[in-house]
Simulated scan of single mutants.
Amino acid sequence: MKKKNPYIFMILCMLIASFICTFLSYYSTGVVERSQAKRIIDDRLDMMSEKIEEGYNEAVVIRNQVCENYEYRAKMIALMISQSTSSISDENSLEEMRIAINADEINITDSSGMIEYSTSYHQGSYAEQIFIDNMSDRNFTKAIIAEDEGSEKIIIGTARVDETGIIQITFTTDNIEQLVSYFDISKVTSEYPLLNSGCMAVIDRKSYTYLSHTDSALTDTAVQIPAEKFNGEKYNFYSYYNGNKVFIRYRIYDDKIIFGMLPADEIYSSRNMVTVWVAVISLILSGISCLVLRKHIIDETNPDI
């Protein structure tokens, strides 16, 4: 009977052991690095969420302060008009009131809401509908922020004291620009870089465009990642971006999606290096073990050599 070659069995065992060690190294290192990537992205998501919330709260405070100031001015005009009703029919008197409160224009309506007196020749048009709906309430005063030819304006509506009607006053203020800047989140991601080649972004869920992106050139452009990936059930997934595999972790914030994206190559860079080293070392150790065992077998088989 032909004797089996013991070296084949030894080499096979060593190769299996090397494969197992390499696989365990590959898997365990990958788990650790993916966990670290999740933690890093979560930290950035937390900071961005806090920044957006902080900006929103600051904007609300500024808006309330600005509007309260202009509402007070509008009430003063209503009181002045009630004490001298004839002044509203005098263009010069009405213009002096406008200048005194630093307004863009003053419009005064009749009981139907139609503008009867104006510093900007709006006679015949109507005041804002929300003001008309409440002009019977003599204590009514409200501020709204509107856009007019690309600029933001504050429009104050206050009920006339002398008779039923609305005094509508329009203001333009530098504070509005400050207010808008707090709502502008296009610059938020620039404050939170993500490792070497990762990125952070904010998506508008309705238009599915970038509201903000680490690469500012992509702001206001369409999102290339499939929308169904952000299904709200799993908060991380793999996808392909510009031909590269990427890991994305996200969260839903009101009508926005905030996410962080890292290339898989960057996440698992250490894993790949460690796996190669483990594979090489395992093969070297296996080879050495085979040689040592071979010598031991030879010594036992030929003790006189």
Rank of each mutant, 00 (worst) to 15 (best):
M1S: 14
M1C: 07
K4Q: 07
Y7D: 10
L12K: 09
A17G: 02
T22W: 07
T29A: 08
R39K: 12
M47F: 15
E54P: 00
G55Y: 02
G55V: 04
I62E: 14
R63P: 09
N64R: 09
Q65F: 13
V66M: 14
A78L: 11
I81W: 09
N92C: 07
S93C: 06
N102I: 14
G113T: 00
M114G: 02
H122W: 15
H122A: 13
I130W: 04
I132S: 06
D133K: 08
D133W: 09
F140K: 06
A146V: 14
D148V: 03
E149F: 08
E149I: 05
G150D: 11
A159H: 01
V161R: 11
V161T: 09
G165T: 08
D174P: 01
I176Q: 07
L179H: 06
V180I: 02
D184G: 01
I185F: 07
V188R: 07
V188K: 02
S190M: 07
E191F: 13
C199G: 00
I203G: 00
D204T: 13
Y210W: 15
Y210T: 11
L211Y: 00
L211A: 09
T214D: 03
S216C: 06
A222E: 15
V223N: 08
G232V: 03
N236E: 08
N242F: 15
G243M: 04
I248V: 14
R249I: 07
I252T: 08
D254T: 12
K256Y: 09
I258C: 02
I258V: 11
M261W: 05
A264T: 10
T275A: 13
V276D: 07
C290R: 12
H296W: 15
I297A: 10
E300C: 02
P303L: 01
P303W: 04
